[in-house]
Simulated assay, not measured.
Amino acid sequence: MNIQKQLITLLFITVSSIALAQETKNQIQADFTNYLNSIVNMELEKSLDYMPTEFFDIIPKAKMLEVMKQTFNNPDMEIDIKNPTILKIDDAQKIENKYYSLLTYSSQMDMKINGEEHETEEDKKLRISMTKTAFQQSFGAENVVYNDTTGFFEIQSQKDVYGISDNGKTGWKFLVLEKNQKVILEKLLPAQLIQDL
């Protein structure tokens, strides 16, 4: 009888742990979806609410907002982000006084670089070729397609992101893992999380 009670207790703890982990993943998914939607809908100031406050000790919030506005409102280019999809969410782990969960998402970014007003056909071909090469180096050749009809580059992107929470349940903030920003990431993440970057 004692063994049966122990097995029931163990089963209850296991089921409870799985349920809590799933509840946490659901909250991460909800918060990250809100973050992505704020970017897709160009609610740039709202999107900053989903970034760790420590990030703004490195790059002030007003400066970050200005850079985002300049990027998305640049008259020389058009950007449209489509179909953001969360591919996986890892279980949250506590490191020091915060919780971290690695997630992966994909999206399509359509981008058009507008040419000069009096651009020749030869200059246009060169601009498109150079831009395509740059995008292929950043995203991989298989993920970049140029649409001759629309003039847009269609870029498939997959990125890793760390969700960060103080309590491991709510208030998830997100930090996209960009290799060219390793110096910033080293200031915001525990060393064991960025060693593979």
Results as ranks from 00 to 15, higher is better:
D110E: 11
D110Y: 03
D110F: 06
D110N: 10
M111Y: 05
M111G: 09
K112Q: 08
K112I: 03
K112P: 00
I113L: 15
I113Q: 09
I113T: 07
I113R: 09
N114T: 13
N114G: 01
N114E: 06
N114I: 14
N114R: 07
G115S: 15
G115A: 15
G115D: 14
G115P: 13
G115E: 14
E116N: 09
E116W: 02
E116G: 04
E116K: 05
E116L: 13
E117A: 13
E117L: 14
H118R: 13
E119N: 02
E119D: 13
E119Y: 04
E119A: 13
T120E: 11
E121K: 14
E121Q: 14
E121L: 07
E121H: 01
E122R: 11
E122M: 15
E122I: 15
E122C: 08
E122P: 12
E122V: 08
D123Q: 15
D123S: 10
K124C: 01
K124A: 02
K124L: 12
K125V: 04
K125L: 02
L126R: 13
L126T: 14
L126D: 05
R127D: 03
R127V: 02
I128P: 00
I128H: 00
S129I: 01
S129A: 07
M130K: 11
M130Y: 07
M130E: 08
T131V: 14
T131P: 06
T131K: 09
K132I: 00
K132D: 01
K132H: 06
T133S: 12
T133F: 05
T133N: 11
A134I: 00
A134H: 02
A134Y: 00
F135P: 00
Q136F: 02
Q136D: 12
Q136I: 04
Q136C: 07
Q137A: 05
Q137N: 12
Q137T: 07
Q137W: 00
S138D: 01
S138T: 15
F139K: 10
F139C: 03
F139Y: 14
F139V: 07
G140P: 06
A141G: 07
A141Q: 03
E142G: 06
E142P: 07
E142F: 12
N143Q: 04
N143S: 03
N143P: 01
N143E: 01
V144A: 01
V144G: 06
V144D: 04
V145Y: 09
V145C: 03
V145K: 11
Y146M: 04
Y146A: 01
Y146G: 04
Y146D: 04
N147W: 09
N147P: 08
N147S: 14
D148M: 08
D148P: 10
D148S: 15
T149D: 10
T149P: 03
T150A: 03
T150V: 11
T150S: 11
T150Y: 02
T150F: 05
T150G: 05
T150D: 00
G151L: 05
G151C: 09
F152Q: 01
F152L: 05
F152D: 06
F152A: 04
F153T: 10
F153S: 05
E154G: 12
E154W: 08
E154D: 15
E154R: 15
I155Q: 11
I155Y: 08
